[in-house]
């Protein structure tokens, strides 16, 4: 059984006259890392909200079709129970603080307090997460007084600490520099290695190419393509749907269009170097 099964799903926000999601069919398998990509307004965040149950439970509106989390329809789940199953880090870091805690340490502990864990266990878990995300130096700070990037990491830590089976993460790196972004991807990979299922909305194609197993490409509320990362990101056709491709893939495609066959389209820096080296050998250039 798939972790999440979505069949013929359409959705309309309240007061809005048209559907934002159209007839989506997808199944999400346990332990896989999915990247959701697509242009602005494609419906990526809305899609995440459906998976987390905020649609329809909080946003209301008109949800048609079927979405099953571990075989049970989203409408039958209680929001409170879903919080232990699906962790959701959303787009805006500035509203992602509880508003009642005075330090980052307490902020990260908030979710575990709500789950009723024992104080000793909470402290241990929070310390581990602080270490893992390398934000121990923030622990005594007031969550209100962090920078955007720091808030984003604290938001991520606050969810990871709850150890949900599925992690839905919506653009977690918008406020981070390249190095911070890379670090966040490393953490997400760590989660994947722990057997978590990951659904990540991101724009940074180079990193997606390196880390994600599968891609869900959205445009105008539809899933226009889905499949393995290497298939989707090496396909020139993907560009037609308002998405970018990694610069390495663009390079490979360009080479092919110039009749210089690299053998395969590279997606990452490493792959580029190796295919180019092979190609140069083959062409007798090296």
């Amino acid at each position: 059984m798939s972790m999440i099964t979505i069949k013929n799903l359409s959705y309309q926000y309240p007061i809005v006259e048209t559907d934002v999601l159209h007839d989506i069919n997808i199944s999400i398998e346990k332990g896989e890392f999915y990247a959701v990509i697509g242009s602005n307004g494609a419906g990526k965040t809305t899609f995440c909200n459906v998976i987390r149950g905020f649609i329809p439970h909080f946003y209301k509106g008109d949800l048609r079709g079927e979405i099953l989390i571990e075989g049970k329809d989203i409408r039958d789940w209680e929001l409170g129970d879903l919080s232990q199953k699906i962790g959701y880090v959303f787009q805006n870091p500035f509203t992602q603080i509880s508003g009642v805690k005075e330090t980052v340490f307490e902020e990260i502990a908030f979710g575990l307090e709500n789950l009723g864990l024992e104080v000793e266990i909470i402290k241990e878990k929070v310390e581990n997460v602080l270490k893992m995300l390398e934000i121990e130096y923030l622990q005594e700070k007031n969550p209100f007084e962090l920078s955007g990037g720091q808030k984003q990491r604290v938001a991520l830590a606050s969810i990871i600490v709850m150890e949900p089976d599925i992690l839905v993460i919506d653009e977690p790196t918008s406020q981070l520099d390249p190095q911070g972004t890379e670090e966040v991807f490393k953490i997400i990979e760590l989660m994947k290695n722990k057997g978590k299922t990951i659904i990540l909305v991101e724009h940074k194609m180079e990193l997606i190419a390196e880390y994600a197993d599968r891609i869900i490409l959205m445009q105008d509320g539809k899933v226009v393509k889905q499949g393995l990362t290497k298939d989707i990101l090496s396909d020139e056709d993907t560009l037609q749907y308002g998405s970018a491709l990694p610069q390495y893939a663009l390079f490979g495609i360009e080479m092919r269009n110039q009749n210089m066959d690299l053998g395969s389209i590279p997606l990452t820096e490493k792959q580029s170097i190796s295919v180019v080296q092979q190609w140069m050998k083959k062409e007798g250039l090296a």
Binding site: F58, L79, E113, N114, G116, E118
Partner: peptide
């Protein structure tokens, strides 16, 4: 979005909460 934050942190989970402080 604050509501979503609280929901994400299991604020409405039906268990007895504990408190660090």
């Amino acid at each position: 979005e604050r509501v979503l934050t609280l929901e994400s942190r299991a604020f409405s989970a039906k268990v007895k909460k504990t408190s660090l402080y």
